[in-house]
């Protein structure tokens, strides 16, 4: 996968001519964790598909590991490649707002993905996941399946707006259901932290009916700890974001992992496709496109399983 990317970018470099063809710049964070890895995977896949379908269209894909580098990448794209449209997942909202605004002012179509800018009205198209719905969908499943008085524990991610919105959605869905949240703590979207946290909760609470791990990496850690304690039959674990191992367990009807909630990294494909469609067909594409979090169940799990994806 990596090799083909290098090959295509090198090829683009060679054939870069300021002809009538449209050039689309794509700037996303580097693959430093599972979700971002999948983001890269889907971006590359979409670019490959669209390049084939639109031979006169150029794509410039860059990945960055910090906001400063992303600003430089964007400047390079405008200066040396003369992009007509930009699809960007800002590394951080604040530092990228100014540079993206300047690009938008110069007449380039701007699509912002997932992380919003700190000023409104800059981008032409905004494509994002719905963190509130991510938490709410999981909470709704808990409220529907668990009895009144059931005891659950909640693993949060890294303390951030994303995490706060998810937890708020989850709590709102539980309201009035009589389900008791025994403990809530940060597992930092990390397998090892989640493993230790779950071990300690298992020592502390004699009865746990369900775990909301809020992310599949944490779910993996939690499941290992539950397995070690020999309490697999007592509780179920709901993760999130649709890691392929989890989706696999769901479609095999594993009672410990009954469902999952999506926060699709493939939203980058949605953004790129919509941008290209806007450029080529003239169909109206401006506005906001919020992708709801769906519940993955054994019935629909096959639609969410990507064999080649790293996540």
């Amino acid at each position: 996968m990596r090799k083909t990317l290098i090959a295509t970018t090198a090829l683009m470099g060679l054939t870069a001519v300021p002809a009538l063809s449209e050039t689309i710049g794509i700037s996303i964070p580097a693959a430093t964790h599972g979700w971002a890895g999948a983001l890269n995977f889907h971006a590359e896949r979409t670019v490959a598909r669209l390049s084939e379908a639109n031979p006169d269209m150029e794509f410039v894909l860059t990945t960055t590991s910090d906001p400063g580098q992303q600003v430089s990448d964007l400047e390079d794209m405008v200066a040396t490649r003369g992009i007509d449209a930009l699809v960007v997942l800002p590394f951080e909202s604040e530092p990228l707002t100014g540079p993206i605004q300047r690009i938008a002012d110069s007449g380039v179509w701007v699509t912002v993905v997932d992380r919003g800018l700190s000023q409104e009205g800059i981008e032409n198209l905004y494509v994002a996941g719905d963190n509130d719905s991510f938490g709410r969908t999981a909470g709704q499943y808990f409220a529907d399946t668990l009895d009144e008085g059931a005891k659950v524990v909640v693993m949060r991610g890294i303390a951030s707006t994303v995490d706060n919105e998810r937890v708020a959605g989850f709590e709102a869905a539980l309201e009035g259901s009589g389900i008791e949240v025994l403990a809530m703590d940060h597992g930092n979207w990390n397998r090892d932290t989640a493993f230790g946290l779950m071990q300690d909760w298992l020592s502390r609470f004699p009865e746990i009916d369900a775990v909301w791990a809020a992310d599949d990496d944490m779910a993996v850690g939690a499941l290992a700890a539950i397995d070690q304690a020999g309490r697999t039959d007592e509780m179920f674990v709901v993760g999130g974001a649709g890691m392929k191992e989890m989706v696999d367990r769901i479609r095999n009807e594993d009672p410990t992992v009954p469902v999952n909630v999506t926060y699709p990294p493939s939203m980058i494909s949605t953004a790129i496709e919509m941008t290209v469609l806007g450029l080529t067909s003239g169909a109206p594409m401006s506005g906001e496109f919020i992708i709801a979090s769906e519940l993955i169940t054994p019935e629909n799990a096959d639609n969410f399983y990507f064999e080649d994806s790293p996540y």
Partner: peptide
């Protein structure tokens, strides 16, 4: 390690 795992997780 990020490169080996292609940004994801090696299992």
């Amino acid at each position: 390690v990020t490169w080996l795992a292609d940004g994801g997780t090696l299992s």
